[in-house]
Design a protein around this nucleic acid. Sequence first.
DNA 1: CTGAAAGCGCTTACAG
DNA 2: CTGAAAGCGCTTACAG
Lengths: 358, 358
Amino acid sequence: MTDTPPARRAARVTLREVAERAGVSRSAVSFVMNGRTDQRLSDDVFDRVRRAADELGYRPNITAQTLRTGRSGTVALVSDFVSSTSFANSMVRGAMHELREHDTLLFTVDTQGDPELEEQLLQSLLGRDIDGVIYASMFTRTISLPRALAGVPTVLLNCVTADGSIDAVVPDEVAAGRDAARMLLDHGHRDGIWFVGALPAGSRGGAAWPEWAPIALTERRAGIEAVLAAAGTALAGEAEIDEDWDVANGRRAVAHLLAGSAAAPTALVCANDALAVGAYQALHHAGFDVPGDVSVVGFDGSPFARAVEPELTSIALPHIELGRRAAAMLAAPGDVPRLERVPMPILPGGSVGAPPSR
Amino acid sequence: MTDTPPARRAARVTLREVAERAGVSRSAVSFVMNGRTDQRLSDDVFDRVRRAADELGYRPNITAQTLRTGRSGTVALVSDFVSSTSFANSMVRGAMHELREHDTLLFTVDTQGDPELEEQLLQSLLGRDIDGVIYASMFTRTISLPRALAGVPTVLLNCVTADGSIDAVVPDEVAAGRDAARMLLDHGHRDGIWFVGALPAGSRGGAAWPEWAPIALTERRAGIEAVLAAAGTALAGEAEIDEDWDVANGRRAVAHLLAGSAAAPTALVCANDALAVGAYQALHHAGFDVPGDVSVVGFDGSPFARAVEPELTSIALPHIELGRRAAAMLAAPGDVPRLERVPMPILPGGSVGAPPSR
DNA sequence: CTGAAAGCGCTTACAG
DNA sequence: CTGAAAGCGCTTACAG
């Protein structure tokens, strides 16, 4: 990248020098360095090579190994925005840590959701003989695999293909929805549970991402409704959000809800934490106490959950674990496509309590 | 990393095949692909090569190029926790984007602050012929450069060495402190300005990171005090935080401050946003309005600033720009060590107003 | 203006 | 048990 010649280069010790110092062939050094015992090298040779390598400070040139073997010990995490975004990027951490166990280094690349840039970056990565790709999405959704990845070992992270033909790791959103609903039922809520963050009819996921199929929303909600139905009840209503799921929109929607509904809700299940924070504000303005008057549950387990008082009870996205499992799947290829659903832990807060007695 | 043979390999088109198809030498193809015009190739040859490459879908093997030239077109961002941490990781984004302009790919690696792991990872990276390293820290601080990086093109990101011998990019914390103080003075505050987040005597940066020199704190505070002194006044007092700068500690410290001080503060400058959120909560409990009774300023520009009402006015860490500049410096080596201070923009909120009239 | 050849630093059959 | 040799896919002096 710079135009300066690689100064290090001259100083670098090669396998040939180790062989000369140890008085053995280059093959022998290679076998020792790679720990190959199937060659029945004498203990003496083994020792001499080890010593020579240590004394010279030998480090194998991995580029040369890669050229020869076709394996680079690198993997790329390719995503729309994951590695550059504040929250979801814990997936990078999980992947990185797991990869460490496999002596594999991680390229991170964001494509901004631009297919042309994505194609170009993938070619650049493939030209570097990466061993595999973790293809990640910022939001849980259905994607179609880029053509460049055909034949390349790939694991999908936080996304799936429509045909399920590629290994994938996703959060268990349905179970998360069930947990949220069950928690409220357990506290005695029943007929006053509202959902905040429904899509307006005809919308497919907020103005900012019009084409993204919002799996998280659909599944969270399905889980909630299943549990309520099993308990013989249902959502009392829903507040629509037709733009981003942010604090201001949450505040507005809940203010509207409180102004409009005959009976005040006893609990709000919010599609994410930012909406829940907005809900807190609207409740506060309307004179409601959390959780005394209204319980609130969020999803994501984001920093927002820790910024409000009482702290928000949230069903957390297991980002680190998602990343870790994706890397583990890539390291251990299976025979058939696998789909792993990672449980979303309940991040306890103080925002859920019994409904007010009437 | 996997044990499966690289299936792609067989299918890969090489330069030799392009040469054969175009009916020219491999040298000619190499020259064309690298856009070298100094060889005065005929237009005809140029066209034939381009066409053959297109038809065959030729992509150069960058591993082979690297082995030959010593330049890999890759850079590593090595940090303690940056690439795996929610907030600071926007630095990764900035670096990634700038690197794109230089056709350079980014390895990201976190060392957890473990010197042994760091050494191992650096060797692994160096064995892959990376062209340079962006060495980053989660918190602004003074570091000592790992020995393995001697002779390797390196830029420090959000940290410096004691002797200033290495290119570095840091936020301009002193100017940020000045801006915070000036903003309060401009709103009419003068003798009631408190600082929240002072280090207890003898401490060097909070219990969690006892050995880290807290540059950010020292410099932010120096900027504040300089501006107040120039205006003929000074901080009215300070609240110490001896543990992490989080919401709960901010709440506790400010509650203590409010209970203890004779005259209520007119403004709180908090060492970071989390402390400021805690301050909001303590003020709220004590019956103070923000900004009607007390103005609040934070630092960092974190998501916390958007989670409170009114939104917090904060002096933001320019993470993306920090990352971008570090990558740019790496791409354009200088003759002498450079230190770039990146301005911290004021993130406007609603938490600063005039002090209450008495 | 073009092409044959060396070489980057390894790994791995293969012959001895 | 060991060593000489080929070859991974490029780039780049160098000879023609």
